[in-house]
């Protein structure tokens, strides 16, 4: 269990992480989602005691990271695949980490085997491809057989095989009862791996929800219809008790998956349809909307602080008010 409380980080004027409060539970994969520059890496560095928070607190099972007496057995982290001395062999890289935590060197062989690097154990890390570097980083994270694992954008730049391997590894680790915390800027990636979702934008918490809830609330399915006989079609659908939204000059949208029913109604009334297609709003769109709102919020509200532990999932966006609203607010 990792608990963040009002975690804040400023770099000069820039607020990289803004009053984050959430917790990461064991036994599931928690996805940490946000566009580039949202503050994911900064948050993770603070969790690991690498960066000092400007305000707020992070606790690992109730303790500060630097008070852990055997950190590698608590947390394994992969922040950056290149965070190693390229001149050192894979084996020696892992050995010096193991020794610093009193982990037997036999464990080094085990994790090398787990990530499939045994054959290049004596090779220098600088000759490794990105995927191999990533595997070596993960081997380091697994060294202490930790109960918490943290990965920062682990699939970035990997080939499909590597991506597949990492996804399965994370799921397997969580299924063993471990806490898995993984960041990404891609909703599609999270949808495949995460059970729980924490979304941030511009350092603020935007959503803290289960993946299932997020999908349910955000993946609206609807039917798109185009017809030259739009008025008559509207009447027909209306009398059939189907709610229609006019989405454009010629386009209508109907919520839910009623394509067959609509097609049959149109046929009965000899109406011409140019399009009748079931649509699914993608999670990526939902995510972009969510984070775009945070950007807009900033742009319009002149830095009025948002309530801590911000709204859940599709936050009721502050109506994109008139230009100058924030300016007025700021003065009053």
């Amino acid at each position: 269990m990792i608990e963040l409380e009002g975690l804040t980080k400023r770099y000069g004027e820039k607020v990289a992480v803004n009053h984050l409060t959430f917790s990461v539970r064991p036994g599931i994969v928690t996805g940490f989602l946000g566009p580039n520059g949202a503050g994911k890496s900064t948050t993770m560095r603070m969790m690991l005691g690498l960066d000092r928070p400007t305000a707020g607190d992070v606790r690992i099972d109730g303790q500060h990271y630097d008070r852990l007496k055997d950190p590698l057995k608590y947390i394994g982290a992969l922040l950056d695949a290149k965070a190693m001395h390229g001149g050192r062999s894979a084996f020696n890289h892992l050995l010096c980490l193991a020794q610093s935590n009193g982990i037997p060197s036999s464990r080094v062989h085990e994790v090398l085997d787990t990530v499939g690097l045994t054959s290049v154990a004596k090779k220098k890390a600088k000759g490794f491809s990105l995927g191999m570097g990533q595997r070596l980083g993960i081997a380091g994270a697994l060294l202490g057989d930790p109960r918490i694992l943290m990965f920062d954008e682990p699939v970035n730049g990997l080939d499909p095989e590597g991506i597949h391997w990492i996804r399965n590894l994370m799921k397997a680790l969580a299924a063993e009862g471990r806490t898995v915390f993984v960041s990404s800027h891609l909703m599609s990636e999270m949808a495949l791996t995460a059970d729980h979702l924490v979304v941030i934008g511009q350092g603020r918490l935007l959503a803290d929800t289960s993946m299932a809830d997020f999908i349910e609330q955000n993946s609206r399915s609807y039917v798109r219809i185009r017809s030259p006989q739009r008025e008559r079609l509207l009447d027909v659908l209306h009398s059939a008790g189907i709610t229609v939204v006019q989405a454009g000059a010629e386009t209508l949208e109907v919520d839910g998956g009623k394509a067959e029913r609509i097609g049959e109604l149109a046929a009965q009334h000899h109406l011409v349809l140019h399009e009748l297609s079931p649509q699914q709003a993608s999670l990526e769109e939902a995510f972009m909307q969510l984070t775009a709102e945070s950007v807009e919020y900033h742009a319009h509200s002149g830095g009025a602080p948002s309530p801590a532990g911000a709204p859940a999932a599709p936050s009721p966006a502050p109506a994109p008010g008139q230009w100058g609203d924030g300016w007025k607010e700021g003065r009053s």
Partner: peptide, 25 residues
């Protein structure tokens, strides 16, 4: 409650571990 318990024994790390690590480095 520890959700996952590792078979690796817990050791309290001290300067000796750091020395061994730096020697390897």
């Amino acid at each position: 409650t520890a959700a996952y318990t590792s078979p690796i024994p817990v050791t309290r790390t001290h300067l000796g571990h750091a020395l061994a690590s730096e020697w390897t480095k």
